[in-house]
Design a protein around this nucleic acid. Structure first.
Length: 359
DNA sequence: CACTCGTGGTA
DNA sequence: TTACCAAGAGT
């Protein structure tokens, strides 16, 4: 009964908590002001499966180079990937690059979630997220935070992803609450902040939660165990060999990966494909870009989402390089679209060249 | 639905 | 040290 009284709904309670506890983030507009829809869009893309701390410096550099959707639309995908290097999930950058051209032609980002979802890289979460945060459309996006908060508050016992249908229904019910209709963007971000700072994945701080009184998961003492998740399979190992080839001028041979798939469109040191079994020295060198006195520099290990990669790195120096790919001055590698795994390889090669020992 | 697709921080 | 995790999307 109490929740039917104006100004005392659960949504209203959360919004009041948000007014006192909201996080200050680079992509967030100050209270009472409207954010730039482009900033909202870019931040949502960067924040997919990525922490705010990791995103912040990338967000700043990206906006400095591409201050508007129009500026982004004029850029080559390759340059966008350069600014994305190290952030991961590079399809995000490719999709953003494509979408920017579509939006630039249309003139502006649409406000309708259905229209937003037609853009590459904008899916079931991000369409309502942008609509709510950038345009105050009364919808409630369900991200990992929201799913966790609602699964606990309503003691949803079914495991993810099956529970998503029920969780989405719980979120949608909030969208008609007058307090949410009045402040859709703040409500969405209040759920993010509650999930990030109080209703944390492990060790939720229930005593400090504005929703504890109405939380079934907390009442049952099972909040920390929710949401439940389907068991995941073990991460397999893969092996490869890559080659650090320099010339008389200190330039390094690189090549561009295929434009789709893993690390699509990114630069890399030439190498083998990545297989389930290690390469012998002979098998590895059969894939070397040139015949040379190859020296084993060490092994780079790198964890991807669905496998662990072990790269044996070989190094050689020749007078002049004649091989497929392109040359890059060794002091210009920082400006290349190198994914982290390749950055590790380059770091190891530099270390060995300066006298470091093989690991 | 199940799988692919990165990375760095935390316990 | 391994394992889990973060404002998910595309296929």
């Amino acid at each position: 009964m109490v929740e039917l009284l104006a100004g005392t709904s659960a949504a209203c309670t959360l919004l009041r908590w948000y007014d006192d506890n909201r996080r200050t983030l680079p992509w967030r507009a100050p209270p009472g002001t409207r954010p730039d829809p482009y900033h909202v869009w870019l931040s949502e893309v960067m924040l997919q499966q990525t922490t705010a701390a990791a995103v912040a410096p990338y967000f700043a550099r990206f906006l400095e180079r591409f201050p508007s959707i129009a500026a982004l639309a004029l850029a080559d995908e390759a340059e966008v990937l350069t600014l994305w290097a190290g952030l991961g999930y590079y399809a995000r950058a490719r999709n953003l690059s494509r979408a920017a051209r579509i939006v630039a032609v249309a003139g502006a980002l649409p406000r309708d979630p259905v229209e937003l979802a037609k853009l590459p890289g904008i899916g079931a979460y991000m369409a309502p997220a942008i609509a709510a945060i950038a345009f105050d459309v009364p919808v409630v996006p369900v991200d990992g935070n929201t799913a966790r908060v609602l699964a606990r508050r309503h003691a949803v016992l079914a495991p993810l992803p099956r529970a998503m249908r029920e969780i989405r229904a719980l979120a949608a019910a909030f969208a008609v609450d007058p307090a949410v209709v009045a402040r859709p963007g703040d409500f969405a971000q209040a759920l993010f902040d509650l999930g990030a700072t109080v209703c944390r994945p492990a060790d939720p701080d229930c005593p400090r939660c504005p929703w504890q009184k109405g939380c079934a998961g907390s009442a049952a003492g099972i909040a920390a165990t929710l949401p439940r998740k389907a068991v995941k399979k073990p991460r397999p190992q893969r092996y490869g060999a890559h080659f650090w080839l320099t010339d008389r001028l200190g330039q390094v041979l690189l090549r561009r990966r295929p434009s789709a798939g893993l690390l699509g469109g990114m630069s890399e040191l030439p190498g083998t494909d990545w297989r389930q079994r290690p390469f012998s020295r002979r098998a590895a060198l059969a894939a070397a870009p040139v015949k040379a006195e190859w020296r084993r520099l060490g092994v780079v290990q790198h964890g991807f989402t669905h496998f662990t990669l072990h790269i044996t790195l070989y190094g050689a120096n020749v007078a002049a390089i004649a091989a497929p790919g392109f040359l890059c001055a060794s002091d210009a590698l920082a400006a290349e679209a190198l994914p982290s795994v390749m950055r590790k390889c380059c770091d190891l090669a530099a270390l060995r060249a300066s006298g470091g020992r093989a690991p």
